[in-house]
Amino acid sequence: MLAWDILIRWSPGGLLPRPWEVVQGLTELAQKGLLFKYIVASLFRVTWGYVAAAVLAIPFGLMLGWHRRGELALNPLIQILRPISPLAWIPISILWFGVGDVAALFLIFMASFLPLTVTAMNAVKNILPTHLNAGRNFGLSPAQIVLKVIYPSVMPQLIAGLRITLGIAWLVVVAAEMIAVNSGLGFLIIDARNAGNRYDLVVAGMVMIGLIGLVLDLGMRRLEKLKSLRWGYASE
């Protein structure tokens, strides 16, 4: 905080806010009811884009990992699409869906879908054949094998992938909101700048983005710590 304050005094332009100004900015936003509204808007978009991607990508990736042919067929496509930044989809998403919530959701979906597919695919491939054989040996039905062997085998990797992807989705929602919509924390930042260089509000938005990102990550980390999942992160 002190370092921040000192740096600001020396910085050129004199536009950047001091810490207490940011606090004032946050209070102002909260009083107008905008802060809460924007946070909800951003979380809403992330949740839906991310959950939709997870619901489709995880079963899809699991299938690909299980059936080697499917993986062989689709892997080249996945590998080409993977290095494309989700932000590169902005023009196409606006072309397809116009400016609005759907375009933003699409971007988050695109950002989450491929990483989750790849995670699920690799998680299945890493299931030990001995575990599957042991399951069959003890007379489990196919459904029981899914429930008692495949599910616990893939969970640690899936949770780790879900955590990383949620981080990506949270990065992308801010970018999407700067361009495609007029609410949310990303919009707050770009709007505060455009409407009279309110850099106190810009930084206030950034602080909120950082804090919420941190809370999301901590929440996912708590999942990783569950005892029945922890084995997956041991050195074995």
């Binding site: 003890f138 029981q144 999942l229 041991a234």
Partner: peptide
């Protein structure tokens, strides 16, 4: 395979996500 004849694997046969009790009880559902 058949539960009347059980295979003990060369390595990494136990389920790492189950406790000792959970592993021993695995086939007793």
């Amino acid at each position: 395979p058949d539960p009347r004849r059980i295979f003990v694997f060369q390595e990494r046969g136990v389920f790492p996500w189950l406790t000792v009790e959970g592993n021993i009880g695995f086939g007793l559902f």
